Each structure stands twice: as C-alpha cells, then as structure tokens.
Amino acid sequence: MLPSSQKPYANVVLARQQQWRGRVGMMLVASLSVLAGMTDAIGFMASGDFVSFMSGNTTRLAVAISEGDLGLTGRLLLLVATFVVGNALGIVVSRMSGRHALPLLLCIAALLCGGALWPFADMLPALLAAIVAMGMLNAAVEEVNGLPVGLTYVTGALSRFGRGLGRWLLGERRNGWRVQLVPWTGMFIGAVIGALLEHRMGLGALLVSGALAAVLGLVSLKIPRRWHLGYMPR
C-alpha cells in the first residue's frame, strides 16, 4: 500500500491517465467515424444503398415489402443480413488477434480496396464487401471510459446527447453526454468527404476508405495496449 502522503499524488496521476485515455479514445472514435461516413456516402451515391446505415435500409425494406417489390425486398434483406455477419466477423477477428486493432483494420482495408477494384458492372459484390467492412468496424471501439459509442450509426449518439441536454436543462450535471456529438460530427465530415470523392472516382473512391483504414490501424499501434483493451468489445 502507498503511504498516506503519496495517495493524493497517485490519485492525480490516475485521474490524468484516465483523462488522456478518454481523449485518445474519442480521437480514435472521431477518426473511425470519418471512415464510416466516407464509406457510407460512397456506397450510397454509387449504388443507392446504404452500407452502414441499416436503419435506413430497414425502413426501405419495410416500404419494399408493402409495395410487393420482391426484388428490392430480397436485395435489402441481403444487405441487412450481411451487416450482421460483418459485426460477428469483427468480434471473431478481434478475439483471434488478441484484441489488437491493427489486424481488424487491415481486414477492413482489404475488403474496401477489394470492393473498389471490383472489375465487373454488377457492383453488388463490391457493395457487400463494404457492408461487411462496416459491420466489422464496430468491433474496433465499443466504449471509452465507460461511455458507449457507435461508429457506423449515430442515431443512438444523438439520442444520448439529447437526453443529456434535457438533464442539463433541468440542472443535472452529469458528465459524458457532450462527447456523443463526436461520432456524429466525424460521420458527417466523413460523408461530405466521401461524397466529393465519389463524384470524382465513383465506387473506386473506396480505395481512399481502405487506405484510411490501414493508416488508422498503424496509428492504433501507438495507443497503449491497456487503453485499447478498454475500448474494444470484451
């Protein structure tokens, strides 16, 4: 045990470490959200389908069913199921690699680059590759200092921000609700970038998304191991 005279100093050091862990974690969340926004915008503009926004695809699925459009219904069911598979694969890859982010992000980079280089007119396989990648991306960060975050969907983040705002207006002073805007802002900025890239490169803009995923994987090596273990799903 530490002498009582050293306990205040140890508490200060621990608090600073937690603060820095939170800052680094939110920077990672912002960067990965930019990647998700880029990819979703590129996929949507190139094909008319979302690659990470499954709430949108679910609503479209319901409309397709109501209109009796069997072709579109089948396509959207495939997209939603593929996203679920991607999430499962993300956990598998994460666990098999000892919960290191680099192998996971390199797999995502490979899928996105493969989608960008798909040589045939039918872009469905390229779209599916991007959807699997976005599902896997959710295994990269699940929480930061106990705060839940989403990377490829921001409805939950906006909801948590709104509820926190309501509590703040009532005089409650809880921490953490403001940071929920980080993934939303990252995804919005990424979507703008992705839209601009798609105008110039078409579906080939996924190459940029793939390169960004690889770069973020390399950057993740600089994050202390014990911090990253706290970010990723258990």
Rank of each mutant, 00 (worst) to 15 (best):
P183C: 10
E143D: 13
V144L: 00
G194F: 02
L169A: 06
L181F: 02
S159L: 03
G146S: 10
A133M: 02
L151F: 05
W177A: 12
V149G: 04
R173H: 08
F161Y: 12
M134L: 15
G150E: 01
T185F: 14
A130E: 12
G166Y: 08
W118G: 00
R167C: 01
A191C: 14
G135F: 03
L181C: 05
A126R: 06
N175I: 11
P125T: 09
G176R: 03
R167L: 06
M187C: 09
G194V: 05
A133I: 07
G190M: 11
F120R: 07
V154W: 06
L170K: 05
V179M: 10
P183V: 08
G176V: 00
A191G: 15
F120E: 06
L158I: 01
V132T: 11
V179W: 00
R167A: 11
L127S: 09
A121T: 13
T185M: 14
L127A: 13
R173A: 07
T185A: 15
A129L: 13
A191V: 14
V132P: 09
A130C: 13
I193W: 04
Q180F: 12
M187H: 08
T155D: 01
A121V: 10
V182P: 10
M134F: 15
P119M: 06
A195L: 12
L170C: 01
L127I: 08
E142D: 15
A157R: 02
L170N: 06
G186N: 12
W168C: 06
L137G: 02
G135E: 14
V154R: 06
A130I: 08
E172G: 00
L165C: 03
A140G: 14
R167H: 13
V192C: 07
T155M: 02
A130K: 04
L181K: 07
G135R: 13
A139Q: 10
L170G: 05
N145I: 06
E143G: 13
G135T: 09
N138I: 02
A157E: 02
R178Y: 01
A126Q: 11
P119H: 09
L128N: 03
P125W: 07
G190C: 04
R173G: 05
F120M: 08
A133F: 05
A140Y: 03
T185Y: 15
A129I: 05
L124G: 01
F161T: 03
G150A: 01
L181A: 09
A140Q: 04
G135I: 00
A195T: 14
G135K: 15
M123S: 12
E143P: 14
G171H: 08
